[in-house]
Structures are given as structure tokens and as C-alpha cells.
Nucleic acid binder design. Sequence first.
DNA 1: GGGTGCAGTGCAACTAGTTGCATAGGTATG
DNA 2: CATACCTATGCAACTAGTTGCACTGCACCC
Lengths: 181, 181
Amino acid sequence: MALEHAILVSLTERAGSGYELARRFDRSIGYFWPATHQQIYRVLRRMGEAGWLTHTDIAQDGRPDKKVYEVSTAGRDELTRWLAEPVDPAILRDGLGVKLRGASLGDEAAVLREVERHRAEHATRLEVYRGIQSRDFPKPDSLNGRELHQYLVLRGGVRAEESFVAWCDEVIQAMRSERTS
Amino acid sequence: MALEHAILVSLTERAGSGYELARRFDRSIGYFWPATHQQIYRVLRRMGEAGWLTHTDIAQDGRPDKKVYEVSTAGRDELTRWLAEPVDPAILRDGLGVKLRGASLGDEAAVLREVERHRAEHATRLEVYRGIQSRDFPKPDSLNGRELHQYLVLRGGVRAEESFVAWCDEVIQAMRSERTS
DNA sequence: GGGTGCAGTGCAACTAGTTGCATAGGTATG
DNA sequence: CATACCTATGCAACTAGTTGCACTGCACCC
């Protein structure tokens, strides 16, 4: 329902091919709306058929042709329409929570190792986000418009990762002192 | 891939019908693994066919019969197997982040109202979680085993909501002072 | 007495997302 | 020199999840 709109936002910022969009999703938007290249290609075609996008074939030498997509007037209209309507609450799907809840039915030490592994992954991602924050937005107080919004979205990512890492630490500490007591 | 396992965890704690499970998901597990009653019914049938569950038909008067599901030995084996294997990273799908990122392309005031609305919803949920925390786990330091894990999962929910609310506040404040400047 | 809501199951049709593969030449790496 | 990865697109087959509906009967409210 909203991958279309995530693509509209991304393509309005800058035109691009399906492949390129998939890369962008891997990095920024994808943290809030994950998508594979397959999904993106399919939706791009559908959006083209609906008249929300136009595309230009660009020949390249040494590598395959690419289709660079741009948002049409109809696409911009659709985006403004969507921006004014209420959005569904966020959906979280976290197998680690399920696992933790069932930990006493299996190998608790293995579950603890899983928590540690996830902590490490999220800590890495947090460092990446913090790097972007200090590199791209050194003076957050002076931001306006699009840049301000990009900064605020990034702040959401930073906060989410911080809180996930802190939660892992709480879990690790509690499970360790349980095991040794 | 893991709704099966979420159901196994829930049914191991206590046997129940599809309807009942759907209710439980609405409250607790569902925060980490959302599922509708339809999805649950379908997966329950599949799990029964795979031999992970057994069910007993229970006649009730005044209301329809129900099928109470229990985890079989094969189901318990599957659960312990799953608990020992690595779990996929959490997936977040948040339209609000997408919207915020595109805010300057539409009605910014409407987006701001959306952020405020989401803040209110998450604040309510946070209060619910905190209520459960102080009612069911007044002395967290003395917890062990299953109870400890349930508490830790709840702590994850509390932390996630706290950080979401704090993020909304940051966004609201930044957008308001931008608009008035 | 009519509407709403709950308990309980389920089908059917749909949309969304995943996984595996195919193609093809370029550029790095061991 | 072979292997593997990057750019670039896409089909086909699958699994997961959503939405709308249908049936029954009780309980509650106005």
C-alpha cells in the first residue's frame, strides 16, 4: 500500500533506475520501508502503467541499458494526496522477542548468544547512522524544509537503534546474573 | 516463517483455540509478531497437518464449538530446534518515517498533525505496558526463568514506545519552531 | 425490537513480499 | 586464468498476509 509512496518520495528527491532505487532503499528509506529489487521493479512497472511515472531508456556501454524513472504530474498529485491522509501505525516483526519469550523451553545459552549477536549488528548500524548525522548534519539547529525532515528521520533511526542496543544490554545482564546465581 | 514458532511458544505456555490465540496476539506476542485471526487459523491447520499440534473439539452451549490446540512432541522438538538457530533481524515498516521524509512536498501542517496523532497512540500503549509492568512484575530483581523472559520482552516494548514518543516530541518541537520562524 | 458487539469457525479472492533463476559483459581478486 | 562480485533488468513460482464475507446465538443497550 505504501511502497508506491516511498518510491514517489525517493524519486521526487532525485530520478533514478530500479537498481539505483534498490540501493537507496538498502541505505536510507529501507530502514523504514524495506524492499528488494524484485518488489521495486514490479511496483515501478505498475506505477508507470498508472501514469505516476515516466521513464527514459538510457544506453550505456559495457553494461545493460537502464530505465531512469521520473515522477509525473499525476504522481506528484498522488503523493500530495497521500501525504494528507492518515497513515497506518508502524509494524514491527521481531523474531528475537518471540525467541526470548520461549527461551526457557530450549537452550537458554543459545538464545543469549543470539541476543549478543543482534546487539552487535544494531550497534554497528547505530555507528553508521551517527556517522551520517555528524557528517551530513553538523548544525541541526539551522536546518529547514527537506533537510530538516531528512535529519529528523535519521534521528528516528538513531533513537530506535540506541534503544534496541540498551534493551539487549538489559537482557544480557539479566540473563547472565540469572545463570550464575 | 516464524508465525508458526510464535504460536508454538504461545501454545506451550497454555493450550487454546484459534480465536483465543488471536486475542493473545492482539495483546502480548502480537507486539512483536502481529497476526490476524485468519492468518492464525490457516497456520494452525497447517501445523496440525504437519503433526506439530493436536486438537480437541470442545462443545459449548450457546456458542459454537471450539478446537483447543495443544503442542505435540514433534511441535516441542521443532520449537527447540528453532530456538537454537539464528533468527532474522527485526523488520520495521513505518509509513510515518516515509511521510516525514516527503513532508516538504505536501501539506507540512497535516504531517505534523499525523506525528501528534501517532505520539498520542504510542503514549497510550506505553501507559498500558507500564501498567502491566508494575502490576505483574513489581519486583523484577527476583525473577527467574519464564517470568524473567516475559518481563524482559515487556521491557523491550516499554523501551520501544518510550523512544518512539521521545522521537515524536523531537519532531514536533523542531517542526513547530521551523514553522514559527 | 433493532442495532452493536462478542465468541467461534472458516472460505474465497486478493495484494504483498520472497526466492531462485536467467542473461550479459565488466572489473577486481587470488 | 578462474572465480566472484557489480551493474542492470526481469520472469516464474512460491509463501505470507489482508480484506470481505458468511453463519450462529447470546448479551447488552436504547
